[in-house]
Design a protein around this nucleic acid. Structure first.
Lengths: 299, 299
DNA sequence: CACACTTACGATATTCGTAAGGATT
DNA sequence: AATCCTTACGAATATCGTAAGTGTG
């Protein structure tokens, strides 16, 4: 047996109105078309559901059986439909994003806040993690997508280039390098350097860009905040991508862009290959892509 | 939003099979037609519900939302549809009939037993009552219809002639009337008579048929069984319709048909005007009409 | 290259609205 | 006579199946 929600709605309209012409109006149909719709239900069910005399319309006993259930049935259906359209309209939903710590702290907050205010019904989850952890979470499906760099093993992943995060020198204001007009990585390598651990994408991309192994750093630490302190104390200089510069906008420190091609950390939106994002996740994905220019401005 | 159960079934089939061609087969459709059906749901919902690559079909997050509810929705619907078709197919239902005591005892039992055995799911109710009570129950809607005679006030009632219940003389075997070849009511009126109360249809119809008021009876009683006893004891004779004769088929009693036009109690199926009977009630109504010939045979 | 989904397209069914028919009050 | 449901019918729309197109393993 096959019925449409239109037919159910028509049935209920007629059961309410007990009048074909009025019920037809309620369904935005002409009366004959409406009549045919009702006839269709009766044929489908194999029972007469309404008794019509020219002056009165009323439910037959079998019509009453259907009437008792039809409203609940349709209400149930509408609830599901509404639910579905809530997801479609981004009134409800869920997004989980993984992001490199620098992005999670620098670029994303404003965008997420904006997204949240436009879609308050969408639950968001932000996992700030180092590169490998970010990509692992994508592969495992823990998050919908990641904002991160790439690595050697990208099997099963689909990356969309976002923006190049260009590297900058950070050093004390009175450091000789702070006075140079055009700086290249080679100019910096002679000076004592503070570096992040090899597990960080900042360090990995830098080494890859340099072509050769970098000279051993003076100190190698885990967190950027530590780098800030060490540079400020004059222990050395460091080279970090633009997205991390907010750590270094402090009195006594100078920030200088580094020239030279390839001296940038390419950032990507990374999702699982072949997986469709939820409407909510896709919306955030698109939004990040749309606002990728702000990655430079944030620097 | 408007969906049909066919679309819901198609959705579930595809969610199960994750394969258009197989799901299409399950729905008895060609694959392209099935594809269009699914596309229709997605357009209606405004969301993509399945992710298709040429090699894999899987639910999108929104598809999963629908999947969670679709099965329950359809199961609910099928339950209601099945219920409705049970009524249509007379596997379920309810009939309430009122009948004159003579009919309730003589004619109906065999028919009801037969009806019950053919439709064991239909609940039956039989109210045996005198004429007025029978018709009142019909008017009040307490019963679906009645098997009875008519009365003066038949407003709002719709009667369908069933069979004439012809009157017979009952008397002791050795009574002079028992030897007569052709009997007419006039021949009987000279002898002492036992009568039922005026409230009975048996008595009412008889008086009406006689044209003039009947001579005062020797005795006037409530129940036919009492009449039997009195006639058997030789206190008088009586005139009763064929349907009651089973009371009088006893040793020592004679039964003789009475000639004369109009000497019959016309029996009707009486239902409320304009009211449609339930499928079950209509089925019994039709059956009674069909087997009206047996009313004579039963006599 | 074989499998699987989509697109294209002509044929068939369904559905719609207008207009006429029939029944009841 | 007025109201209201049904029937009739041509037009617009939807749906179906066949056949060709496209992309993936």
């Amino acid at each position: 047996m096959n019925l449409s929600t239109r037919q159910l709605r028509a049935f209920i309209a007629l059961a309410d109105e007990r009048h074909f012409t009025r019920a037809a109006r309620r369904c935005h149909l002409t009366q004959p078309a409406f009549s045919a719709l009702i006839r269709g239900i009766e044929e489908e069910a194999g029972v007469r559901l309404f008794h019509r005399s020219t002056r009165h319309v009323e439910l037959t006993p079998e019509g009453q059986v259907l009437d008792a259930s039809a409203r609940r049935l349709l209400a149930d259906f509408d609830l599901v439909a509404e639910d579905l359209q809530d997801y479609a309209a981004k009134r409800r939903g869920h997004v989980a994003v993984a992001a490199l710590p620098s992005l999670a702290a620098g670029w994303l907050p404003a965008i997420l806040a904006d997204f949240r205010s436009r879609h308050p019904g969408i639950a968001m989850q932000l996992r700030d993690a180092l590169l490998d952890a970010c990509l692992d979470m994508v592969q495992q499906g823990t998050v919908d997508f990641a904002v991160a760099a790439r690595r050697a093993d990208m099997t099963g992943l689909d990356s969309q280039f976002l923006q190049a995060d260009r590297y900058h020198l950070v050093c004390p204001q009175d450091h000789p390098l702070a006075r140079a007009r055009r700086l290249r990585l080679q100019d910096v390598l002679d000076h004592p350097m503070i570096q992040l651990a090899r597990s960080s994408s900042v360090r990995q991309v830098l080494e890859q860009a340099a072509g050769a192994p970098l000279p051993a750093p003076v100190l190698e630490v885990e967190h950027l905040a530590t780098v800030t302190g060490l540079v400020q104390a004059g222990l050395g200089v460091s080279v970090v991508p633009a997205m991390t510069l907010f750590h270094f906008r402090r009195p006594g420190l100078a920030i200088r862009p580094l020239g030279g091609k390839g001296l940038a950390r390419p950032l990507y939106l990374v999702k699982r290959r072949g997986r469709t994002l939820s409407v909510a996740a896709q919306a955030l994905y698109d939004e990040l892509l749309r606002r990728r220019a702000e990655l430079e401005a944030a620097a």
